[in-house]
């Protein structure tokens, strides 16, 4: 799980151009949207692309993103549950 979390951090930084952030500065449990990393609605769509590109997971309804993209840990747990890690 920890390895997957670290991998995800790198992928998110790259996909979302978060160049001022280092992986070690990201707390896997802090919220991705709003207060935490401060991501926005385009970032949410970009995370959907990330899951499909790197993990072959398709999210058809963007509303499902709300629960999956709470934090990096919930993302990792979702990927694991899909058997795609």
């Amino acid at each position: 799980m920890d390895a997957l979390i670290e991998k995800l951090k790198g992928q998110i930084i790259e996909q979302l151009n978060l160049v001022e952030l280092k992986p070690e500065e990201i707390n896997p449990d802090s919220p991705l949207f709003g207060e935490g990393l401060g991501l926005d609605s385009i970032d949410a769509l970009e995370l959907i692309v990330l899951l499909e590109k790197h993990y072959g997971i398709k999210i058809e309804d963007p509303k499902d993103g709300k629960t999956i993209f709470q934090s990096i840990r919930t993302m990792a747990e979702y990927i694991k549950a899909q058997g795609k890690s």
């Binding site: 979302l16 151009n17 385009i42 970032d43 769509l45 970009e46 692309v49 590109k53």
Partner: peptide
């Protein structure tokens, strides 16, 4: 085939 919403906007 992964068009990016960030690029498209």
């Amino acid at each position: 085939y992964f068009p990016s919403p960030t690029v498209f906007v």
